[in-house]
Design a binder for these strands. Structure first.
Lengths: 336, 336
DNA sequence: ACACAGGAATGAATCGTTTCATAACCAGCT
DNA sequence: AGCTGGTTATGAAACGATTCATTCCTGTGT
């Protein structure tokens, strides 16, 4: 026999299946003596509940689905951990799917979650999934968008205010007295990049004499950042910016390398440098990097919180848009 | 109505539930005309199969469980991707659990997977789980260990030969003519660290006049590596090693920073440096790092392969121990 | 001695899908 | 007309846990 069922347990303990179920789910309804008998039968048979049967009966699983853009990105692993911790407290499981920024994979995971009758879905969307999400909602499966606000406000979302983050970073550089600021980042089609730039521009426009130069990169990687840093280093001193705001920490780390190569530019004395995301590596860089921190785990737990609330509520649910403020982390790269 | 069932579809299409099931699972057995009718009923009702019911009937889910030590470690995300790709091809889903090196969480995930009647489990174990795995096996759920070989050979495993990797790294340094070699790594209680050191020692002992110095670190992090690098830089030139083998790339990156700080030691001219893991960041370091590459995705897909084979086989299954050879990746940090 | 309250245990019905033995139907052949 | 073989469709049973209306006890109070 591969696996014992409640029936087997009941037979061995000399009770009915209903009683076994009661021992499992409402122990207070069962006499001590019977509880002991059933327990020992469970132990002897190595009985383990069949989740599929429970779910079938219950009509709904006790997991929630999470689809992320990139499982390797620390931001998303932190976010997932935040959601998991909150879920565990609620006796729920989080199933993580990695869309890898691919619409097909995203859609496949949504299908899977729908078949599993998950309690809800947390989604960092790739394509235009709103219709798909409306279908899920009709089926009673709520969705909360993470890291991207919904266009039409019909779904709840949790995100960070990248505009404010950009503004904050630029304002910090300006407060150091720097005026010739360069933004390193790209591609501009990524919303986060565009927002951070827009925020920076806003802060810079507000200060007379401050200028903003945009140095576009192909991607948000260390290598791109390094190329940008080297190109700045190769300029005549007078034409260099006196501060750099990089669209994320990987770029900042790369830029730092490019600048410092061959005893080049001194950071922060000649050029101050700030990144974005505050990844673990930022603090460990040759010159510890200032950065804009995003509360990734908090985003995850909050998203799950909203999801639970929506799942518990009746029809007239009001979607909520939560936007977290980013946080400025000052380290050596902008001090001195 | 929250959700339509086969019964609803059958009623609308004017056929029996069995026929609906046939349309879904053996379309060749159903006439074209009926297929069309059923399909349009499915579309109209937005019918989605209930996975719990399928699994209950089938007696087994179509997912496999994976428990990793650290979901944030690129090695494991790559491994997971390898397993997922292979699973997708087999129409299976991978459920990823993050034990975070905690025995309690590991155990909780194994419980969950057992309740879900997964097809099998891939496990990068924390504690002594062998008895638990034997219990799973009795239930018909096979396990394959990843990244750690089983002590008693009773379970299949997939790992990388860290001994050979350590030997390879040290041999490479020796082949450059370096003789005063330092191993940076720790804690020694981690099997991978111990094996890599043992491998290095073996290579060094084989060359007359070559010496090995062990510089212990508290952890496998950039910060620890940097401290080690700085302590080496602060020595009189004559007492410095002429090559460093770091137990992983994070340490190597840190060591590199520590060495180069303030125009200090030239890498590789004065000290050659090699790391381990070949993480993405290695190629992007100020001086691109040589490293020992582990085929992480291949480990994942191979583990899944073994799992499938064991699941398909009858009782007399012979566990297999697969050990992959690591690969030497030479970059600037050991050239010149 | 009897009724009765209330705790404890029962077991049939249920969830949605799949399977499989059976039935229905049709065409071709004797 | 009767028979055969083959293709399609049917519907009841089964998977395993949970639920809930019902039955069974036991002890208390009159």
């Amino acid at each position: 026999m591969v696996s014992a069922s409640v029936k087997d347990v009941a037979a061995l303990a000399g009770v009915s299946v209903g009683t076994v179920s009661n021992v499992l789910n409402r122990p207070e309804k069962v006499s001590a003596e019977v509880t002991v008998r059933v327990q020992s039968a469970i132990d002897k048979l190595g009985f383990v509940r069949n989740d599929a049967a429970r779910q079938l009966r219950a009509g709904m699983s006790h997991s929630i689905g999470l689809v992320v853009l990139d499982a390797a990105n620390p931001f998303f692993t932190d976010l997932a951990r935040g959601a998991e911790d909150r879920a565990t407290a609620e006796n729920l499981t989080v199933l993580v799917g990695n869309s890898n920024e691919d619409e097909g994979r995203e859609s496949a995971y949504l299908d899977l979650f729908e078949q599993q009758r998950v309690r809800g879905v947390l989604l960092s969307p790739v394509g235009n999934v709103i219709p798909r999400l409306e279908q899920l909602r009709r089926r009673g499966i709520p969705t909360v968008l993470v890291d991207r606000q919904t266009e039409n406000m019909s779904f709840s979302s949790v995100a960070v205010d990248d505009l404010a983050g950009g503004e904050m970073a630029a304002a910090h550089l300006l407060s150091l007295g720097r005026r010739r600021i360069a933004f390193v980042g790209g591609p501009a089609s990524i919303r986060q990049v565009a927002d951070r730039l827009a925020g920076a521009r806003k802060a810079i426009d507000a200060v007379a004499g401050a200028t903003l130069e945009v140095i576009a990169t192909e991607s948000l990687t260390v290598l791109s950042g390094r190329a940008a840093g080297e190109s700045i280093r190769s300029r005549p001193k007078a034409e260099r910016p006196d501060a750099i705001f990089a669209a994320n920490d990987l770029l900042a780390v790369g830029a730092l390398q490019g600048l410092m190569l061959m005893g080049g530019v001194k950071v922060p004395q000649e050029i101050a440098l700030i990144g974005y995301d505050d990844i673990e590596f930022a603090a460990a860089a040759v010159v510890p990097l200032s950065s804009i921190r995003q509360p990734s785990a908090l985003i995850g737990s909050t998203a799950l919180e909203l999801l639970l609330r929506e799942a518990a509520s009746e029809d007239g649910f009001e979607p909520a848009q939560v936007v977290f403020p980013p946080e400025l982390i000052v380290r050596a790269s902008t001090q001195g």
